[in-house]
């Protein structure tokens, strides 16, 4: 039983990481209608920026805040310079541009900071809570709390703020939004800025656990994309729930199903996702859109 509980707690901890990055993917999808393949690499890059600020002598929380602000500005700049020129082209064109960003950010981080892993200063106390044989690091709880707060904030923004409404409108239909007077380009730029800021937060909060190097987010991105799709691309809570489910299920499957073992455990959540999508194509909590012909 303790083994089971431990695995569930571990699963929630890993799942929180997937969910954090998935949230950024959902944000950018919901505000601009795009999928950004570079989301993970940009988060990694932001974490490096925070690490650098800290290395220059700033406190870690201050460094984190500055890096998040820098990422917000950087995200808007990227949208303006690189994404806007192709945003009217085919979806795949934009996706490939983000793939270019993926390679560029990864390589640039390696060029600047090297490939040796770095310890990211902990943002939470490093002690561990014991419940019998079950051990839960305080940092894992901290990351989970951050996740809940960000997801909640995001959902409220979309639901209750004017800017959130404008973002949803633009993502849903750019042309109509223009007609009703929304400054589409500004909204898109803001969407990118916010997504990058959120991604930066994700990168900064998971870095102490994963250890910082240019490939930190490589594996996470795959899970995060899966979580975003599984949860319903447009639902922050869906992404969170899906990420947690993936984290827990793969842990349990890897431990309890002998044939699966740890080498094939990634297949279990993917299988689960496919089966779910066959019956609920819009994802767990996604909205269903009616298509008019």
């Amino acid at each position: 039983m303790e083994r089971f509980i431990q695995l569930v707690f571990d699963g929630i901890a890993t799942g929180s990481i997937y969910s954090l990055v998935a949230l950024a993917i959902v944000l950018i999808y919901r505000s601009t209608g795009l999928k950004n393949l570079a989301q993970g690499e940009m988060a990694m890059f932001s974490a490096f920026v925070a690490w650098q600020f800290h290395a220059w002598g700033l406190g870690i929380w201050l460094a984190a805040v500055l890096a998040i602000i820098a990422s917000f500005i950087g995200g808007m700049a990227l949208q303006r310079v690189i994404i806007r020129p192709v945003q009217d082209k085919s979806l795949l064109t934009v996706v490939i541009v983000t793939l270019g960003l993926f390679l560029a950010f990864n390589s640039l981080a390696g060029g600047i900071w090297g490939y040796i892993i770095k310890a990211f200063p902990p943002l939470f106390p490093s002690n561990v809570i014991s419940m019998g044989a079950v051990r839960v690091p305080v940092a894992n709880i901290g990351v989970f709390m951050v996740l809940v707060v960000l997801a909640g904030g995001l959902a409220m923004m979309f639901k209750f703020t004017k800017i959130g409404l404008a973002m949803r409108a633009v993502a849903y239909n750019m042309e109509t939004s223009k007609l009703v007077g929304i400054r589409v380009n500004n909204v898109l730029m803001l969407g990118w800025g916010l997504a990058c800021a959120l991604g930066a937060a994700a990168g900064i909060f998971v870095a102490p656990k994963l250890f910082l190097d240019p490939f930190m987010m490589f594996g996470v991105l795959i899970y995060a994309i899966a979580a975003a799709a599984f949860g319903g691309l447009d639902s922050p809570f869906g992404a969170v729930l899906a990420g947690l489910i993936i984290g827990v299920v793969e842990n349990l499957a890897g431990s309890y199903i002998g044939f699966i073992g740890s080498d094939l455990k990634i297949l279990v959540p993917l299988f689960l996702i496919v089966v779910t999508l066959l019956f609920r194509p819009q994802g767990l909590l996604g909205h269903k859109y009616v298509v008019r012909v």
Binding site: R3, Y18, G219, Y223, S262
Partner: peptide
């Protein structure tokens, strides 16, 4: 014995086992 793939974000589950 436990294995991991290089795409695994963490090895928590394996070490727990």
């Amino acid at each position: 014995e436990q294995t991991y793939e290089v795409t695994d974000p963490t090895v928590d589950q394996q070490v727990t086992e």
